[in-house]
Design a protein around this nucleic acid. Structure first.
Lengths: 351, 351
DNA sequence: TTGAAAGCGTTACCAC
DNA sequence: GTGGTAACGCTTTCAA
């Protein structure tokens, strides 16, 4: 079976196949791309030749000629962050399903790297780009004008217009607060993430809305702000407990902080969830393995990825017309053990 | 400042810049690519023109001509798996640092998709490929012969020869067992993952080695096998506890199973880590948020990615000569609360 | 149904 | 130093 026929050194090109099949290069191209205007006989002959020569069309050449790369790019702020990975996963799924490749770019949240990502689009390395931007995609205004294809931004748009997918994280924060009340909490505390960021502003806004609507308050002593990390949550909870103000429900601006806070609470002898209900946001995997499992508000990362990809492919296939479209997905409550409904204290048995 | 100068519809090419700068296309190319044989004056002129025209070199054209894409591909079995993400992260780092782009392909462990990944290399979409293969890269033998560039495989090579990076997970399992003895365990149990897979075979082999060397045994009743999931671990632990054979240390073939097992143990009133030490493998993020934090054996995913990338770029830049190289990294113990050293029962105070 | 030829936008090898 | 010119490998008219 060693019908190798290897052309020694050189790559095998379309003309090699053409010669072997006794047709022109044009015919080979047509035949291999399934054109209907080729006789069944030649098609088969060509296919056999291509196979036995192990012909592989050169992608760069085809791209150059067709002016399309069959590739989209996804630029994420940090490839280590599971939330972005979740987005990447669904984007990859849609892309593959459409026969596209995926270029992954990690920007580390640096504007220079975001510009670089747009560069790949400008260079026509890719046909379209999905960009996840934290800082509200501000400096990209001009860069967006130079690119040679559609762009979809996931995250908050500061002042530019562009196809975009966001999640209503204010609504998510409100959802979290209301959930705590619904399981019987009477006084909430709130741990927010790094000041000055869009997510932290939004989440506080959401909590405020909920407070207003429920005619309740969170005194300043029960509002603390740290960065969005495990340690941040730990420190924040410690500070809350030194305030001397009683609270029995804790809303955290993300899960990492919530987990850190739970650790601190437990160290101070607070029983979860009996003494205190805790809820986070993001619904990361870790929620399922804490004790008790952490309730959270899913920000629908996967769904956002799917929608963004859809938006992008709409532009790619349907023609580029139409005004920018903004999609907003709604967060979803994931109730778990950390917010188990309160027992009425009538029949409580303390082990 | 609106020096737009936009050539209406058409993309701006190198000849546009050439005309604007009153030089030839060749000169533009040389100037922009930093050739030394261009006068400083022309270089600056060309650069200004390129900038003001917003010229972006076409990547496909350059690739076609240069026969290189400045892109490598990484094919992972499952983009949802944090272990592979960790690999992806370091590969991406090395790639960027070398000025290369990263193509990410998720194969879902399907041989057809692995072949597809190799296809991107054959099509010269990419210059090189790192392939993470679970099933020991068996059917790829012939496909590997057709590709147009270097391939590095992360994982076990069944019978093919190829640059490759593996981790000695047998050593890792032995490490886990020895660690449990060192913290005072006298009888171990072992929860293994899905039968018939390479990792499960290796890890059991490692435990056996350790047992042999320590002159100890794990009776069959204390060896169970489930799939590598949280639920698998949960079920496995349940089965262990119905055996009626006492054990005080539990080695799990991965962290997910260990976490599931911990949950089951706790539900049965077993105190961790006082009554039972538990250790997993992989060192996933979740280890840090369980109660107690789960000890684990890191399989050095990031390091493997880094090494694989290094191997690949050695081929890419240094010339393709040299026989296949096989690298094996050593696992590292990550001791945490779940394997806290045993208190001697003399001064124990039960709260 | 098939073939010839003209690009796609670069880079590289020559002359000048 | 700089400018022609010929590839790179493919697709796509347009004729035959």
């Amino acid at each position: 079976m060693s019908q190798s026929t290897r052309p020694s050194d050189r790559r095998v090109t379309i003309t090699d196949v053409a010669k072997a099949a006794n047709v022109s290069a044009a015919t080979v191209s047509l035949a291999l791309n399934g054109s209907l205007r080729i006789s069944e006989a030649t098609r088969q002959r060509v296919e056999r030749c291509a196979l036995s020569l192990r012909y592989q069309p050169n992608h760069a050449a085809a791209s150059l000629r067709k002016q399309t790369t069959q590739t989209i790019a996804l630029a994420v702020p940090d490839i280590g962050n599971p939330v972005y990975i979740e987005i990447a996963r669904t984007v990859q799924q849609v892309a593959r399903q459409r026969g596209y490749h995926l270029h992954l770019i990690s920007t580390e949240s640096q504007p220079s790297e975001e510009a670089h990502a747009l560069g790949t689009l400008a260079h026509r390395s890719v046909d379209g780009l999905i960009l996840i931007s934290l800082r509200g995609a501000s400096g990209l205004d001009s860069a967006l004008r130079d690119v040679a294809g559609p762009v979809v931004i996931i995250g908050h748009l500061r002042d530019i217009v562009c196809d975009n997918v966001t999640v209503d994280s204010a609504a998510g924060a409100a959802l979290a607060a209301r959930h705590l009340w619904s399981v019987g909490c009477s006084q909430l505390a709130f741990i927010n993430g790094a000041a000055g960021t869009w997510p932290s502003a939004e989440r506080w806004r959401g909590v405020q809305n909920a407070l207003l609507a429920a005619n309740r308050t969170i005194p300043p002593a029960l509002r603390v702000q740290e960065d969005f990390t495990l340690d941040g949550g730990y420190r924040a909870a410690q500070r809350l407990m030194t305030q001397g103000v009683h609270f029995d429900g804790l809303v955290c601006a993300n899960d990492l902080m919530a987990i850190g806070a739970m650790r601190s609470l437990r160290e101070h002898g607070v029983h979860l969830p009996e003494d205190m209900a805790v809820i986070g946001m993001d619904d990361i995997r870790e929620c399922q393995v804490t004790t008790p499992p952490l309730s959270s508000v899913s920000l629908m990362a996967g769904e956002r990825g799917r929608l963004a990809a859809q938006l992008l492919f709409d532009r790619l296939s349907g023609g580029e017309d139409g005004p920018p479209r903004q999609l907003t997905v709604s967060p979803v409550l994931m109730a778990r053990g950390s917010t188990a409904p309160r027992q009425e204290p009538e029949a409580g048995v303390d082990a």
